[in-house]
């Protein structure tokens, strides 16, 4: 089975079956990363360009490792070291990269819709590695994989996504993904962090953390973007933490076997306390491990030959 599409731009675009195929494929690739020799020849001769217009450690490294473990040639370009600083447009960058015949471009961009534009300009596959406040599909896929692996299913679960939903591409992708797989998604945060009519995406909205986590199976904490604090969606970090930070006290109100996710990087003591982040309910590092498997699966399903 292959994905019958050129690009992965959003979870909104994917069908339930496509999501399930990615998860199943990722499960089978996990084992490669556990080997002594962590490499399969599947994508030998394929060229993958990681084009990152925004700073990223985890996602970029994860895509790079995934490419290399599949034996593809991975090239990393970051905006600060590219012609972008010379004022080159996305269109021109796309055309120039295309002229070098890559098989896939992985794009991280601060503007929503940039991967959509790129995909329309190049013949090769495009994977959205996070665009503005729009989507971050590979993150949602690794989140779904982590939950499925731990709890054995997704259908029927209650997933609480907590924090700055307004600015979160992770939230949007996860709301689409988990609802497509039959989970109930709850978006919780301050009213100032709730995008207009988010409930139309199929989630329930909560302005109170306790209500959102009370009987949830999964708590997904979102990063508070301290660099955006000038937007002043809340008066102080202290007050935010008090209302929506996850600490052991709030965790007592959740189910005993609840699992905790966070896309990282975490702000310790802001949206999540250290004891919770490092505690037994936390799957934050499993998410990172699964990220490699999910990205290997995406490369395989887009670029691999039909067996």
């Amino acid at each position: 089975m292959k994905l019958n599409r050129k690009d992965i731009l959003s979870i909104e675009d994917l069908t339930k079956e496509e999501i399930e195929l990615v998860l199943k494929t990722a499960e089978s690739f996990k084992e490669v990363s556990e080997r002594d020799i962590k490499k399969v020849p599947t994508l030998r001769g394929k060229t993958i360009i990681n084009l990152f217009y925004e700073p990223s450690t985890r996602t970029r490294t994860s895509f790079e490792i995934a490419a290399k473990r599949m034996s593809a040639d991975a090239i990393n370009i970051s905006a600060s070291s590219s012609s972008v600083v010379k004022g080159e447009t996305l269109k021109d960058t796309a055309k120039n990269l295309e002229a070098m015949n890559p098989d896939c471009i992985v794009l991280r961009h601060s503007f929503s819709g940039a991967p959509h534009i790129l995909a329309g300009l190049v013949k090769c596959s495009v994977i959205n590695a996070g665009d503005g406040c729009h989507e971050h599909p590979s993150q949602a896929l690794l989140d779904m994989l982590t939950v499925k692996e731990k709890l054995g299913r997704i259908e029927g679960l209650k997933i609480a996504i907590i924090g700055d939903i307004l600015h979160s591409r992770v939230a949007r992708s996860n709301i689409y993904g988990f609802t497509k797989l039959g989970a109930e998604v709850r978006a919780a945060g301050l009213p100032t962090m709730m995008p207009c009519r988010i409930e139309q995406m199929g989630c329930r909205v909560f302005y109170n953390m306790e209500d959102a986590i009370k009987d949830s199976d999964v708590i997904m904490m979102l990063r508070i973007q301290l660099e955006r604090q000038n937007a002043a969606l809340f008066p102080t970090v202290r007050e935010y933490s008090k209302l929506f930070g996850l600490d052991s006290k709030k965790l007592e109100m959740a189910k005993k076997d609840v699992i905790i996710l966070h896309p990282g990087p975490i702000n310790r003591g802001v949206e999540i306390s250290s004891d919770v982040a490092d505690g037994r309910s936390s799957l934050i590092l499993d998410q990172v491990t699964n990220g490699v498997a999910v990205r290997m699966a995406l490369f395989y399903l887009l670029l691999g030959r039909e067996l």
Partner: peptide, 15 residues
């Protein structure tokens, strides 16, 4: 425009 479409597209809305 600020509405469901802006939320979906992740674009900032003008109410």
């Amino acid at each position: 425009n600020e509405g469901f479409i802006s939320t979906k597209l992740g674009l900032k809305g003008i109410p």
